[in-house]
Structure formats: C-alpha cells, structure tokens
Design a protein around this nucleic acid. Structure first.
Lengths: 339, 339
DNA sequence: AGCAGGAATGTCATCGATGTCAAAGAGAGA
DNA sequence: TCTCTCTTTGACATCGATGACATTCCTGCT
C-alpha cells in the first residue's frame, strides 16, 4: 500500500509564515498588512518568509472575521451577449477599479426566477453592494438586506416594492425629440417597434411615442405599433411586414438596441427611403448614417458604481434617483422627408 | 445622549435559527442542508425559524470551513467594452449556469500589471477555477496555484511559462482560406491591418497572412502591412491612408473585430470597390455583405467553462489544448475581383 | 540606577458553519 | 423487561485572519 498523497494540501497560512519567520501570527499579520509598530527587521523577516512560502492571504477568513462587508460587488444583468448589458457592466467595472472591489456578474435572461436565484447567491456571498437590472417585479425579498444597510441600486428599471437607489433613462425626452423631428418633416404614419410591455422601458418609450405623436396632431395608428419584438431576427421580419403593408409607414422608430439592428438590416435591403430612427447606438451606425436616440450604457454603469462607492463611504441617506438623458443624434436616416 | 443605533447589526446566524427552533446549531445545519437523519418535525421547526428570521447562510464561513474550493470562478479578460470579450464572458457564464458557480470578472485592458493585480485578488478570494486571456507573458507566478490543483485555463493566447489548459483559435486556416480566395480572384496587392505584435493572435494571423500570400506566388509587400492598429478610429484612418496611396491595395484584410469595424467604416465611404475580408463578425456584417473570417467567442467561453467543470470533477490530467476553427464566410466583399 | 511610557510582540477569543465523535432516543427481538 | 442497534441530536474543535487586551522591550530622563 502506497502512502496517500494528499489531493490538495491547502494554501500556506499566516501561521506558517509566522513560524518560519519566528514570530507570532499576529505580528506576521501586522507586518503583512503594513501596520505601524513593527520593527523594520521583523517586517523584513516576515516578508521573506511570506515570499518563500508563496503566501496568499485568505480573504474569506479575513472578511468573515471583519464582519459583513466583503470586497465584492454584485451586478445582475440580463445577458452579456447584449451590448447594452455588457457596456453597462464595463461602466460598472470601470467605476470600481482602483477600489479593490471585485465584480461578480450574473445574468438572468430577464427571467424573474433566475433573478431570485442569482441574487440569493450573491447575498450569501455577502456582497458589499448590489446592482441589478430587475426582471422580477416584486423585490420585497430585498427588504431585509436593505435594512441591514446593503446598498442596492436599480438600473434601467425602477424599484417598485423596495426602497433603493436607481439610475434610469429619461426615455421621454429622446423619443419626443425624435417624433418631433419626424412630424416636422411631414411624417404622419410612423411605426414603432417595441419589446414586451412587461418591460418598463418598452412601455415607457411607447407611451412617450404615443404622446408625442398625439401632441403633433397625428393620431397614433395602433396597427403600426408592434410590441413584443424581442431580438434581431424578429425585428427584421416585423420591419419587413410593416413595409409590405398596403399602407406602409413613411417612418419607423425602433425602441431598443437589438430592435434597431434588426430593423436597419431590413431597411438597408428593402426600402432605404423609409425614414428611420433607432434607439441606442451600434457598430457602424454613424457610418451608415442611421439617426438614433443615443444613450450611454457605460455611463449608466459608471453612475451606479459611483453611487455604490458613495454609499459604502457615507452610509445611509435618502435614496438617490438619477435620470440620464437620451438625445436624438441626427445622421440622415431620421431626416428623410415623406417619400 | 441618545442610544447608539448599531450601524449594521449583522445577519442572522445559524445559531439564531437554532435557538429559535430549540435545537443545536449542528442540527439546524443538518436540516437546512437537507441531510438525512433529521426528524421531519424537527426539520419543519428549523425551516420555520429560518424563514421567520430571514436566515441566509454565510458562504464565506462555509467555504472557509470546508477548505480551498469556493463556488466562485474567476475570469480575466481585456475589457467588457469589446464585444469579443463580452461574448467570451457570455459563453463562460452560460456554461457555468446550473452549477451554482458564481462568475467573478475582471478586466485588464491588456496591461500585464493589471493582470497581476486582478489575478492576485481572485486567488486571495480562493476562486475554484481561473480563466484568463493573458496579457502578461510570464505566468510563473501561477505555478504555485497550479500545483495546488487550481484549474487554470488560458483563452485566446497560449500559456507560456506555466502548464495550463487552453482554448485557442486555429488562426491559420481562416486566414489562409481568405487569402486563397483573394489571390484566386487575381489580387496581388493585399493589405493587412493587425494589432500590436506583442499580441499572440496578431502575430500569428500576420504570419499566416504572409505565408499564404507567398504560397500563392504573391510577394507580401511590407508597406501594405499595418501593425499596431488598436481601435476603431485608428483602423479607419489606417485604411484611409492605404487607399490614398499612389499604389493602393486592391484588397484589404483586417485581423480582428475592432479593426474590421474601423476598416469597413472607411471603405463604405471611400472605396466600396476594394475587396475586403474582416475578422470576427459584427452587427450588420451580413446585411452589408461583408465577408469575414468568422470565429465564435461564445463558443470559446463555453469550452473554457466545460473544461473547468471537468477539471473540478475529475481532478488532474494532462493539460488540454483545444483549437477552435475560424472559417471564411463569403458575403460579397471578399469576392470582388481586382478593380 | 530606577522608572515612566511608548514601541514591539504575544495570547486568546472570535467571525459562522461544519466535521468529528459521543451521547441520548427509539424500536426490535429475546 | 432488558439488551442491541440504528436513528437523532449535541458538544466541541476547527478553518484562517484579526480585534482586544496583556506583556515584554526599549529608550530617555531624573
């Protein structure tokens, strides 16, 4: 029978370092953490020992000992595949740099079920702040954590059943601006492509669309409003359907980034004459002369990060609610007159 | 003097639950963790107590007690802003779902310094697996962890000074295919746009480019090879410079995704007649008829996730090295003859 | 030389969950 | 009724780092 080789002999611990350096664990800790009141020569010995043993402090232990706040921030988004979310994440990441905060990212695919699961996991890991693009509608399950002082920040969609900070879009202004531009140029039959009405942003943008149209004296034609457009392919075909009507719209507005890409792909092929305004920028949008209602997901993420950092320093206070602008960027496709 | 309100009165602990349920902590733990040998009635009492107190187990404590392996996986990439990386991350995320593994993401902006820092932080957090798109060249600092059995997976670029699994592209085949297509159609003056030669993929693709060109009997013209093209704007201007030459190329190949977008933006404006092949797909690539050497970052991420999961089950073994195909997708821009 | 007082170091308990091992309970069979 | 075994439960130590507090070591000053 051969001697058992331990499958994983564990990391070297502070104790090991201390032993090798001939000091107590506490002193070793002091040296490693750069506390004062450690003799230079002792510090040196500890560092040497630590290097020799390739010592890596165990954050789990440290954070357990020190209490609730860890160095990890949780970010819950829809899906990294979608550039909106990945840029959002990039913004958060950017804000957290230089602050020794790790970023834990989980995606929900906008399923409320999954949101619960991933948020739960993050809470068990004792993240020090939680940011989420909510997909569930009831967030009372976060109430306990809130009371414990956990900074919670909602992105893109507002908190409903819980008090929390939020960073949202001013969806109205951009959409109104776009519709104003179109109606000014004579468009009356304007179609809109939107995502599911369950989504806050979809509904809000659609509402802005209807209001702006009505204000301009053009009655919105419900037949030209296509909701529940989820992804690029469905947006492409929905656009084709609109153009194939007996009474096609003279202009189309797409109300999120994926829908914009799908619509553009059809328009480029079928009818470059139809006026178009997208939402949220995308690759080559500028080159192709596509007018868009621009927003900046990175900035949203960045703001969220800033709020989190502020909360971590400052503690409590009234919930913040930041509204980020969306504005029309004119590049040609939205300025086409009625054809 | 008012009574101090404790700033954060900590989470409820298993002890609290046990006390309320009238059992010992150990029994409460057994109930919560669904172990057998717990009387149904006892389990019930514990669950009730846990619910009442909104108990959330502390994973830090659990993982500390149980040893090295946590439920977190570390992913180190360049930058979430770049769709290549975000799709890679999406693939990893996808693979890890249903496995109760959290994903910690950190970006390096391809700076070796930062890689060290973020990897260090992940190791201190005792991630259970580490995946990285390396930016440093020396990874001997990972040797210790490797010996401790930490699964390490390199993405996009191979490990050099350390033994590890890897998932890479077969850069050669796609590039050769593209060059073959171009030369077959008579192109001899083909330009290439590549990223910094420090990057493994840039150099490898450029090498494949030169080889393929030579094989076809067309001597590569170094004046048409532009390296160190980092981002979209610089790719756009580099392309413009090429087209403005006295002896402009008749075809251009771009060797990564950002460069492709930049080059396309210039080509669409200045000279739609120049043949073009991009690398890595992008929005509207299909619609615009842009031929590309396609790869699938999602798949790369997915593979990495699979390897990690396998290693976590299985333990050790020889390092895996997966090579993913890149293949030419013909959509028109690459099939233009010499103009 | 003697002593005050800060600097340097050490001891021990603790964070929360869980592995180990032992004790208490509960049936089954004689 | 009394062992014997299996089930259920509990006491205690432990993971690794660190806070609170105690102790030892200097150094300057009288």
């Amino acid at each position: 029978m051969t001697a058992e080789i331990p499958p994983r002999q564990g990391h070297t611990t502070l104790q090991d370092v201390a032993r090798l350096a001939g000091v107590s664990a506490k002193t070793a800790a002091r040296a490693i953490n750069g506390e004062s009141n450690v003799r230079a020569e002792t510090r040196e010995r500890v560092f040497t020992a630590a290097a020799a043993l390739r010592f890596r402090p165990n954050r789990l232990a440290r954070e357990l000992r020190q209490g609730a706040r860890t160095g990890a921030v949780g970010l819950v988004i829809g899906n990294l595949d979608n550039p909106f979310y990945s840029q959002l994440a990039a913004g958060v990441d950017h804000a957290l740099r230089e602050h020794d905060l790790e970023l834990i990212i989980a995606s929900t695919d906008d399923e409320p079920e999954r949101e619960r699961v991933v948020v739960q996991a993050m809470l068990e890991r004792r993240v020090t702040a939680l940011m989420l693009v909510p997909s569930a509608t009831d967030h009372s399950y976060l109430e306990g954590e809130r009371q414990l002082g956990l900074p919670i920040i909602f992105l893109d969609r507002p908190p409903v059943t819980v008090v929390a900070d939020s960073v949202l879009w001013d969806n109205h202004s951009g959409v109104r601006e776009a519709i104003h531009e179109l109606t000014t140029r004579g468009h009356r039959r304007i179609a809109a492509l939107a995502d599911s009405p369950e989504l806050f942003t979809a509904t809000e943008r659609l509402t802005a669309f209807r209001e702006a149209l009505t204000e301009a004296g053009a009655e919105p034609d419900e037949a030209l409003i296509v909701a529940r457009v989820h992804d690029v392919p469905s947006a492409a075909s929905a656009t084709a359907d609109l153009l194939a009507r007996d009474d096609p719209p003279t202009a189309i507005i797409a109300l999120n980034n994926r829908i914009s890409v799908g619509a553009v792909s059809t328009l480029l092929r079928d009818d470059p004459a139809c006026a178009f305004v997208g939402f949220d920028d995308f690759d080559l949008g500028e080159t192709l002369g596509i007018s868009v209602i621009a927003n900046d997901p990175r900035e949203m993420g960045n703001h969220a990060g800033q709020i989190a950092l502020r909360r971590l320093k400052d503690g409590t206070g009234a919930p913040e609610r930041i509204s980020l602008p969306t504005r029309l960027v004119q590049r040609g496709s939205g300025e086409r007159p009625v054809s």
